[in-house]
């Protein structure tokens, strides 16, 4: 049960957003720009960074939600998402993404943990300044969201079949206030 009365039955971040729409609005637009920009990093790379950081922060709702979104962008390759969570060094991803995940993992510990070597390594693998910037900000943003979601003890659905449905909604319509204002996606199979 959530630590405070959020006045809705929505899961995870959605319930916190619905409780506080004034703060949800800039967060929603920030997420839309940062997670769905096609410039530099791809959408799947952005979601994999978010999933990985959420996994390191042990945030069940966020790492499953964003893992499901990444999975759609990766044409259903669930195994790759799982590999990135648990052992990205051996995953079938580019050296550039590996170097950026290393930076994201450092940001998860503390901003100061990122070293010039980490940055140099990413540059050598082909990362631009904007790629590095976006990686650091995505990792930092998930350090916020994971704490917001778990710090209020929002509800994480245990029905795992509900995650791909919400993921599909994000992939199709993006981030923003509609995710808590409109009806929650339901299974087509009913």
């Amino acid at each position: 049960m959530p630590h405070i009365d959020l006045k809705n039955d929505l899961p995870g971040a959605r319930s916190a957003f619905a409780y506080s729409p004034e703060t949800a609005e800039p967060i929603g637009i920030l997420a839309e720009i940062l997670m769905r920009s096609d410039e530099g990093l791809t959408r799947s790379e952005r979601e994999l960074i978010g999933t990985y950081v959420s996994y390191l922060n042990d945030c069940f709702y966020c790492h499953h939600s964003h893992g499901a979104i990444a999975c759609i962008y990766l044409n259903g390759d669930r195994q790759l998402v799982e590999q990135v969570r648990k052992n990205y060094q051996h995953a079938a991803i580019s050296d550039k993404l590996k170097a950026l995940l290393q930076i994201a993992g450092k940001v998860q510990q503390s901003g100061k943990a990122v070293t010039p070597d980490d940055i140099e390594n990413a540059r050598e693998a082909g990362a631009t300044d904007k790629d590095i910037h976006d990686t650091v900000l995505i990792a930092a943003m998930f350090c916020m969201m994971n704490r917001y979601v778990d710090g209020l003890a929002t509800t994480a659905p245990t029905d795992m079949s509900s995650y791909p449905l919400r993921a599909k909604q994000i992939v199709e319509t993006g981030y923003g206030s509609h995710i808590y204002k409109s009806a929650q996606p339901a299974s087509d199979q009913t």
């Binding site: 930076i103 450092k106 940001v107 503390s110 901003g111 100061k112 990122v114 590095i132 910037h133 650091v136 900000l137 990792a139 930092a140 350090c143």
Partner: peptide, 8 residues
């Protein structure tokens, strides 16, 4: 913010 500012 702290991670953004120090991470870069």
């Amino acid at each position: 913010f702290n991670r953004y500012v120090d991470g870069l």
